[in-house]
Design a protein around this nucleic acid. Structure first.
Length: 222
DNA sequence: CACCAGGCAAGTA
DNA sequence: TACTTGCATGGT
């Protein structure tokens, strides 16, 4: 049973996919690299995160043991291009500590329980909020959970699909209730939303060039 | 030059 | 509960 909202969402997805094609998210070679990137990209452009990841890769530090043992000050130097580096060193260490303490440092074990259990665990880590946790669950663990971000909220409100007052969980529930729980769909949709938001929602003159403009459901920005 | 990026936690009232 | 503020580098 496809709802009217579901049809509207699929329409948006089809337009975005036709316009921009597959975004190939998440760009990471391992699950650990994916999780590290998820923390580093918090309120930070991916371009800056790439530099930080590259620094870690060059030194072969992308393992649980190495990230556990490396002194915070040294790690801070390597991830510095990603910004907030003092904060993010702690967040990375918190995540590593969590995986070691709760899952014996085994990411496969971290990703084994049901989705809700994984989410609760990740959210218990200081520095991992809902978007970061859900990103790890979708792109890392490969579970069908829609990742919500500011652009998701922006696009869905502007097309009249959700209320302005909707919070993270409201938006996520709306998407989960109206779309098939398909991992590849969720991965691609979120990535396309972020690309669209970055390119067209930031400034008003660009909005008229947004491919979603042709749907006719987009509100005018005053 | 100003503005903002693939957020989050802690503080205030 | 509902706002506000600190965190920081690098691209446009």
């Amino acid at each position: 049973m496809i709802t009217a909202s579901g049809q509207a969402l699929i329409e948006i997805y089809n337009v975005l996919f036709a316009s921009f094609g597959p975004q190939n998210w998440w760009p990471a070679e391992t699950e650990l690299e994916m999780m590290v990137g998820a923390i580093l990209t918090q309120n930070t452009s991916w371009n800056n995160v790439e530099k930080a990841i590259q620094n870690l890769k060059e030194r072969d530090l992308l393992s649980i043991g190495d990230l556990r043992d490396i002194p915070a000050s040294i790690l801070g130097g390597y991830i510095r291009p990603a910004g907030y580096y003092n904060l993010k060193v702690k967040r990375l260490k918190n995540l590593i500590k969590f995986i070691e303490n709760e899952y014996d440092g085994d990411i496969n074990r971290l990703f084994s329980p049901d989705t809700d259990t994984i989410r609760k665990g990740l959210l218990s880590v200081k520095g991992i909020g809902m978007e970061t946790a859900d990103s790890i669950i979708l792109y890392g663990a490969g579970r069908p959970l829609f990742v919500v971000d500011t652009y998701t909220y922006m696009i869905l409100t502007r097309h009249g699909l959700i209320e302005d007052e909707a919070g993270y969980n409201d938006v996520q529930l709306f998407l989960m209730d109206n779309l098939p729980h398909d991992v590849e769909l969720f991965k691609e949709f979120h990535a396309l939303i972020v690309k669209t938001g970055k390119d067209f929602c930031r400034r008003r003159p660009l909005c008229s060039k947004c491919p979603l403009e042709n749907l006719g459901s987009c509100y005018e920005i005053t």
